[in-house]
Amino acid sequence: MNRAGERLLNGLVKENPTFVLMLGMCPTLAVTTSAMNGLGMGLTTAAVLALSNLFISLLRKIIPDRVRIPAFIVIIASFVTAVQLLLEGYLPELNKSLGVYIPLIVVNCIILGRAESFAYSNPPIPSLFDGIGMGLGFTVALTCIGAVREILGSGELFGYGLMPDSFEPIRIFGQAPGAFFVLAALTALQNLIKEKRKSAGKSYRKIGSGCSEDCGSCSDMGCVRRFYGEKQTGKQGSRDKRQNEERDGGQDENRDERRKGNRDGKQKETRGGRGKGDRNEGQDDGGVRQDGGRDTGTDGLEYVDLEEEER
């Protein structure tokens, strides 16, 4: 089941809910005072997310379109209640330190977002793995933020003293402003790494990875696919390979095809499209592109290269 692995990677890296989608900011900023809290919150959310995704996906043909949001909420709330009772029973301390943020998982926008954009229009198994991937991505992000804040704010990690005695805790990192600083710094760091790897030829395509191939029921109004009415092939792995081959030296042999694809290329230019393939193309038919060289977007979002999709 290649699809499942792709969903996991998608949740962990490409569409990491915290660092890329910027969802669920409330628990991210509020409970990450220590690595343990971050880990606990992340795993709790992951459990709820995976289960609610699975069940929403199973029930997706029964739930009427108009009342889908209340239906989602009922499903999610049931799981949250169950998880909270389990936490109270088996991990009372964690439950105490997370406090009100456990019941608030019901309104966590990651869960509702995944239900709406993925689980409601996809089969159960990919939905389950989407939930696990997103949940783990959230967990990793929260644990990282919590760890940095705990080290700087109290000189400990998971409760163990890490810093020498002469270290004086920087108290602001235990408070709300510190959460913003750490979140911003870590987001910038992962963008930097992705930019570096992108220029080394790795693909971090964002659009399309959560695509249900049904533009009619999709809420992503800014999607390129919707713009051009393009069909999603969903085969990301093979696409990447092809992209790499092309870079390695397939420039000349693919020339005709590229010319053919240029119709779309021109359309794309009006939208300021950017992507790796674009640059090669610009060298070939010199001067067609006018937005030259702006292909390192700061939004971490690479527009889909349409002509490649066509081949």
Binding site: E168, R171, I172, F173, Q175, P177
Partner: peptide, 10 residues
């Protein structure tokens, strides 16, 4: 202000 919040006693 950053220092004031971080090291109030200092």
């Amino acid at each position: 202000c950053f220092l004031l919040l971080s090291f109030p006693t200092r």
